[in-house]
Amino acid sequence: MLGSGAIQTLLPRLGAVATLSRTQVDIFSRLYLVFLGMGTLVGVVVISYLVYNAYKYRTDAPDADGKYDVEEVQDDDVVRPKLGEMPSSSKGGKKLFLSFGISAVIVLGLIIYSYSLLLYVEDTGDVEPDMEVNVEGFQFAWAYEYDNGFETTDELVVPNEAVVGLEVTSRDVMHNYGIRGLRAKSDAIPGQTTETWFQADESGEYQAICFELCGNGHSNMREDVLVVPTSVWEQGQEEYDFDDPEEFGEWYQQTLEAWQNGELDNQLEVTN
């Protein structure tokens, strides 16, 4: 499993960043597209077939005497329901297994395909994350702890292109930590730790949102995640010792201020 026994003591030197073939975003987008394609196809076919039959075999005979419905007729090839009969089936039950078989193949195919991607996601594609961040949810914000011991309850700041492993927990009630746009999401459960990871392709502003009802402030439990360009991160590493929480903290504070003053704007690829 991700991160177990593999906590890195150094924050990443981005020259040596592990390269992953696919990020969570890639995987989700592709899978979602496949499902959406198949789902729409199946939906359109089945619904059209349903409506087509319902329309084709309609009768518009006038109300029969004493009833608000048509006169009952019996034709040769179809046995129609009769009041008080023992229930039985119409012919054609075997056809059911044809459609049953087809949908079984489609559904199982989709699931087997998606399962292979699940194993990849659970294992970070067998690549050790470049850095680990512990996330602790509390009513109503997030507390982060970096590898080097630096702690903050403000924004999460990470470098672009690094594989970031998250260990998520909660100090009070259940939350769910999700970064929209990066497809990282994990339940924050008191007393339990869950794991997920993400890798940003583009630097910029993202949002960490709570996706589990956690109390009165739940609707406002959102915080920015700042993915800085690799150049900014590496420049920081040259000027500060990132292994030292205090020095890292200084850089962190400085970067946040720069960002809030709009100094980073022209370097960020994604903005809110």
Binding site: Y32, L110, V121
Partner: peptide, 20 residues
């Protein structure tokens, strides 16, 4: 429609993003 969109949720990787 409800059934088909439910199959999406059964695929765990998609569920990770759809959750909540």
């Amino acid at each position: 429609i409800g059934g088909i969109t439910g199959v999406f949720l059964g695929a765990i990787v998609l569920d990770y993003s759809f959750r909540g």
